[in-house]
Amino acid sequence: MDEMKASSSTYELKPWVQRLVLFAVCFVFWLALVWPVSPVDGQLLPGDIAAGLFVSAFVAMVMKEMVRVNFIRFVNPRSWFWIFVYLFVFSYYVLKGGLDVAYRVLHPAMPIKPGIVKVRSVLKTETGRTMLANSITLTPGTLTIEVTEDGIFYIHWLFVNTLDEEEAAKQVLRRFEWFIGRIFE
C-alpha cells in the first residue's frame, strides 16, 4: 500500500539496525522457550545459549526483508495502551466465538445458515488489515476468505443475519475496526 510505504520510509531503519532488532527478538524468544520449567533440576545450559545465538544470527542474516514493521508505531505508548485494551475485547470475542460455534455444532438441529458476504473496511494500512482479518477469523462464526487491495473483505459467515452490505459490516467488522484503527493508524 502506498500510504504504508510513505509513512514507514520516513522512519526507515538502517539495514543493520533492522537485523540487530530481529536478532534480539529471536534471541529473547529462544531464551524464553529454553528456560527450564522446573527450577530444581533445570538450568540454562551454555550450549542452549550458544545454539540460540547461532540460530538467531542465521535468521537475522537471511530474513532482513521480512522486517517491514513500523517500529516508531510500536514504541508509541498510546499504541501500547490500545493494544492492552484490545487484548480484553479480543479475548471476550474469542470466548464468545468458541461458545457460539460449540453451541451450533452440538445442537441437534444444527442451526446454521452459512454464506460468503462482502464487506468494506475503512482501514488503510496493511498491518491493520492483517490484524483485522485474523481477528475476524477467530471470532463468532466468521472466517476471512479474501482481502483485496482496496479493502474489501470476503467473509464466510456461519449464520448470515443480513444480506445488506452495510449492516453486515456493522455486525462483523466495526467492533474491531475502531480499536485497530487506534493501534495502527
Partner: peptide, 12 residues
C-alpha cells in the same frame, strides 16, 4: 468452510 470454522474457533 463450515468445518474450518469449527476447527479454528473451538480448537483455538
Amino acid at each position: 468452510y463450515n468445518r474450518i470454522q469449527a476447527s479454528t474457533k473451538c480448537v483455538v
